[in-house]
């Protein structure tokens, strides 16, 4: 048994940290907690928790089966809690779904048309590539939380005042 205990968070067991202001505005630190955000989110709502120009990190509550999404650029998902299956389809006509200049994820209308690429099952700490030109769908076999590295898109939700220290 290790003398060290590594502490990860989860939907059911997390402690939000503290921000102690000496001479500044707490809003400047945009301080939130991914598990706290996901605990109040709708399934697969893409809540922006970090933004740097057009790039974002989103906190996503993984619960049940998601819609199909597609992206024109790579995205990455890190499972922070729970277990998530990711199904991938190589779109026959990706431009018709997510044009090359489209940023962020878009919802696919109906079932994606293309070849099945395969699927991945991720548990806590696992990171998956969601490749450009593919459609993907999440199935949470256990409700959990994902962190998405992507670009600000039509589905991204910004609600800073609700999630951050003020």
């Amino acid at each position: 048994m290790s003398e060290f205990q590594t502490v990860f968070g989860s939907l059911n067991d997390y402690t939000k940290g503290e921000l102690k202001i000496i001479n500044d505005d707490p809003k400047h630190y945009v301080f939130s907690n991914i598990f706290d955000v996901a605990s109040k989110s709708k399934p697969y709502e893409k809540v922006v928790v970090a933004i740097n120009l057009e790039y974002v990190i989103e906190a996503v509550r993984a619960e049940g089966v998601s819609d199909w999404y597609a992206v024109a650029h790579d995205e990455f998902a890190i499972v922070m809690d729970g277990e998530v299956r990711i199904d991938l389809v190589k779109l026959d006509n990706p431009n018709a779904v997510a044009p090359a200049d489209k940023q962020g994820a878009v919802k696919v209308k109906g079932e994606p048309v293309g070849k099945k690429m395969g699927h991945i099952v991720c548990k806590r700490g696992h990171q998956a590539l969601l490749p450009a030109g593919a459609a993907y769908r999440f199935t949470a076999t256990k409700t959990g939380v994902m962190m998405m590295q992507t670009v600000l898109g039509d589905l991204s939700v910004q609600k800073w005042a609700e999630i951050c220290y003020k």
């Binding site: 940290g17 921000l19 102690k20 400047h28 630190y29 301080f31 939130s32 706290d36 928790v49 970090a50």
Partner: peptide
Amino acid sequence: RAKAIMKAGDVAA
């Protein structure tokens, strides 16, 4: 200016 005590899952700029 500030102190930030960050725990698992926290995000800060």
